[in-house]
Write a protein that binds this DNA or RNA. Structure first.
Lengths: 140, 140
DNA sequence: ACCAAACTTTAGCCACTGCTAAATTTCTGT
DNA sequence: ACAGAAATTTAGCAGTGGCTAAAGTTTGGT
């Protein structure tokens, strides 16, 4: 039921695509924080993303609605199995993009910023090319 | 008040950044269409982006508000000088990203799709690296 | 034990970007 | 010229993602 629309693809359906980007950023962050500090609280995400706790709260509600996370009142946020899978995939992709940019000669600090933006727009094919380049750049 | 934000940058302020991405896409498209067919009408943009004319209308209103375009009722859309400069810069950046992906080995069709998504997230430093790679890949 | 600080939640605001329906204007073909 | 088609505009709905203010809950320090 995805698309019955005869839409000119290549231009993203901004709203939907953007929403899943946010979801990926959040699950990635939740997994990361949970790994480092044991649990992930709303305030941790608020700090990381530079938004208010209120915004985090509502975003988490969407993750819960979409089956990516679970919450109980005043309790830490936990990922569902689906959410964890998405987090893992996102982190892997993020890492590939980051290493690629570094291998290309971009400074680490810039690479970290750009990888955040780029990772959500890289197709599997392009990702494979990134990986190949990084690998071959390592051992010439 | 401005500088009191201890905000973790690297994560984009989604709303604002997304809005300017859309602005770039639109001015780029307007310039492109105007060049090919003489004028650019709302319906042309609607077709290109796969959205309704209503959506285009409101987006154009924002471009006008932001000084990037001008309109008169029922007349074609025209870019301001500022809008044209932005269009030119956007198109150049788009072209650099596209050529880079192709040089990297990505198929043209995928490269065209991915370039659309990536171009808004590439810093000047990374863009320079892209350019260098494409140039050196040309003549080995 | 208690009060204060920190955190979470609720309520309600705004902007952006989709949409449909309906009214208006312009264009086109006969 | 004029009717119908095409394009534009207006009005109003929905969902995402920012915010502040204020209320509720947990947690920590004395």
């Amino acid at each position: 039921m995805a698309e019955s629309q005869p839409i000119k693809r290549r231009h993203r359906k901004t709203r939907a695509d953007h929403a899943s980007e946010v979801a990926e950023d959040y699950v990635e962050a939740i997994a990361d924080i949970a790994q480092t500090k044991g649990v992930c609280r709303a305030v941790d995400l608020a700090t990381r993303f530079g938004v208010t706790g209120v915004t985090v709260n509502r975003t988490i509600a969407r993750l819960v609605r979409d089956g990516l996370a679970t919450t109980e009142p005043y309790a830490p946020i936990r990922l569902t199995t689906t959410g964890q899978r998405l987090a893992t995939r996102s982190r892997q992709r993020h890492e590939i993009v980051l290493q690629f940019l570094v291998a290309l000669g971009v400074s680490r600090s810039t690479a970290e910023i750009d990888a955040e933006g780029i990772e959500h727009h890289v197709s599997p094919e392009t990702l494979k090319c990134f990986k190949s380049f990084t690998d071959s750049a390592g051992k010439p």
